[in-house]
Amino acid sequence: MTRSREAGARLTLDDVQIRFGDFVAVDGIDLAVDPGEFVCLLGPSGCGKSTLISAVAGFESTSKGTLHVGDSVVRGPSLDTGMVFQSSEALFDWLTIRKNIEYGPKMRGVTAAERRKISDRFLALVGLTHAADKLPAQLSGGMRQRAQIARVLANEPRVVLMDEPFGALDAQTRHVMQVELDRIWRESGCTVIFVTHDIDEAILLADRVLVMSAGPAARIKSSYSIDLPRPRDEASPEALEIHRRLRADIGEEVQKALAGQGLVTEEEVH
């Protein structure tokens, strides 16, 4: 199925600052994400990647600037955005996978018959039809993450935010999930913002990779368009060259972060 870019929303951040008391987490963030685009955020630990997407989700308030999803200003959580967390504990462990997926539509007043159609659709999309009546504890980590993705997509968000959703998975399961997410994204047409520390993961998934600077007052330092055919081969010469550039770029920010913690000297950074 060819993805419908109309399903996703344009995301716009204008001069966004997020602070906690006197601490400025991110500052001066200007970003425009096209409908249906897949963007990955990379950067050193503590640079504000998770804080930034939490603000897009409406969970954090901006101190300055504006956030728009489509034509709407973000003022709090909205059905236009959905969040997939790193931990699959976000699933309700007392509900079956089908009931987890149907939970959002049920809260919106969707009829039982229509909820069944919705859950059938998204169970099939993430390959969990056979596990519909199982509880989360009966599934593997990768299957639970697929269920979490299905639960988010069942609300038909226009922007899907993912905070290191595969970080806790083993390497083999993680690769399977990356391939599955690429397929699901192309079929759903959602706009995706994906936080990761894994350069190869970003290259495999993203249309564009954004590198954030070391905090505090982190900003978007650089942007890389990943114009490679899908499915991608991370061992191709083109992918390896992008990996080299990203590693060097992020490495500079990691060294600055370490210097800020007193773990290396400023001379070592330069």
Results as ranks from 00 to 15, higher is better:
Ser140Phe: 10
Met143Trp: 01
Met143His: 03
Gln145Pro: 06
Ala147Thr: 04
Ala150Thr: 05
Arg151Cys: 02
Val152Lys: 07
Leu153His: 07
Leu153Ser: 06
Ala154His: 10
Arg158Ser: 12
Arg158Pro: 05
Arg158Leu: 00
Val159Trp: 13
Leu161Ile: 07
Glu164Tyr: 08
Phe166His: 04
Ala168Arg: 00
Leu169His: 06
Ala171Gly: 05
Thr173Ala: 03
Thr173Met: 12
His175Thr: 13
His175Gly: 11
Met177Cys: 03
Leu181Ser: 01
Leu181His: 00
Leu181Gln: 00
Asp182Pro: 09
Arg183Ile: 00
Arg183Phe: 04
Thr191Asn: 01
Val192Ser: 02
Val195Gly: 11
His197Leu: 05
Ala202Pro: 01
Ala202Met: 09
Ala206Gly: 12
Ala206His: 14
Arg208Pro: 05
Arg208Cys: 03
Val209Ala: 14
Val211Lys: 00
Val211Phe: 05
Gly215Met: 09
Ala217Tyr: 02
Ala217His: 02
Ala217Gln: 02
Ala218Pro: 11
Ala218Val: 06
Arg219Gly: 13
Ile220Phe: 15
Ser223Arg: 11
Tyr224Gly: 04
Ser225Gly: 14
Asp227Cys: 10
Pro231Gln: 05
Arg232His: 12
Asp233Ser: 13
Ser236Val: 10
Glu238Pro: 02
Ala239His: 11
Glu241Gly: 03
His243Tyr: 15
Arg245Tyr: 13
Leu246His: 01
Arg247Trp: 15
Ala248Gly: 08
Asp249Gln: 05
Gly251Met: 08
Glu253Lys: 00
Gln255Phe: 15
